[in-house]
């Protein structure tokens, strides 16, 4: 009965939504056709069709090294952030100690503090520690940025978990460690894995902090792209962008699938 006035409003809403999605996606998606161009210039629309820039990306050692470095850093970051983030979530969700809210805020602060400020701060400290331009420094920095994503994911899982299950395990003879390994961890695993994937992605496409903490001898893929775009505008960048995009999208989808695997309560 109310459809008569609802219909136009609904259409307007759909149109607005579609437009928003287009503005968000278009700049990203434009690189995909550009990467298949046959010409030597980065142009849109692309001229001709070729996969030569993908060949160059794979064969050029500068790109393949960057790719490998990014993968290494992201992998180590994901592991470190997942372990630390899971422990932090356990502490802040289950623990009862003074200043719990403040600790939680501090852990989540990298989500709010501008990345450039974090980058400058870390750079000045890491220079003194002599770990700039190394994988160690970058992994530590990315871990700080990635931990909040793990904490948020794991905390959500923990809050939705029935605490009686842990008490039941204890009454059946399981100490704290075995209770965690056999009961808590399996039940929050979807949250842990999703957090880990988010941590990987965070590191994988991070560029601001990486610019400060990498050197000519140790560069990640996004930093390599940044350097290349500033010098020669070569369609290889578009090919690399498309590859990055594909990896990130795949991991994000994976994270959502994993998140839904929460066991029925």
């Amino acid at each position: 009965m109310t459809d008569s006035w609802r219909q136009p409003r609904r259409l307007l809403l759909v149109a607005l939504g579609a437009l928003t999605v287009f503005f968000l996606m278009a700049p990203t998606l434009v690189v995909v056709p550009m990467s298949f161009t046959a010409s030597n210039a980065l142009t849109f629309p692309p001229e001709g069709l070729s996969t030569r820039w993908y060949e160059k990306m794979v064969t050029d050692p500068q790109w393949s090294t960057g790719f490998l470095n990014s993968a290494k850093v992201a992998f180590l970051t994901a592991i470190l952030a997942t372990v630390l983030g899971t422990l932090a979530a356990l502490g802040t969700v289950r623990g009862r100690f003074p200043g719990r809210g403040a600790v939680n805020g501090l852990i989540l602060s990298p989500l709010i503090v501008p990345v450039i400020i974090i980058a400058i701060g870390m750079f000045s400290v890491f220079v003194r520690w002599k770990i700039t331009g190394s994988i160690v420094g970058l992994v530590l920095a990315h871990t700080a940025l990635a931990v909040p994503f793990v904490v948020v994911n794991v905390a959500t899982s923990l809050r939705s978990m029935d605490r009686n299950l842990e008490q039941a395990a204890q009454s059946l003879g399981a100490g704290p460690v075995r209770t965690f390994r056999r009961i808590t961890l399996p039940l929050i695993l979807p949250g842990v894995l999703a957090g880990g994937l988010f941590a990987f992605i965070t590191s994988w496409d991070e560029v601001v902090v990486s610019i400060f903490l990498t050197s000519a001898r140790f560069r990640t893929l996004p930093v390599e792209m940044w350097e290349q775009v500033r010098q020669v505008v070569d369609p290889t960048v578009a090919a690399v962008s498309t590859t990055l995009l594909a990896v990130t999208t795949t991991l994000l989808l994976l994270a959502f699938v994993v998140r839904r695997q929460a066991p029925a309560r």
Partner: peptide
């Protein structure tokens, strides 16, 4: 003595079966 060393069986209202 902590609960896991008391050797006491407990049954909860919401069953508390391990779902996994």
């Amino acid at each position: 003595v902590p609960p896991y060393r008391r050797d006491v069986g407990m049954i909860f209202q919401n069953y508390a079966l391990f779902p996994h």
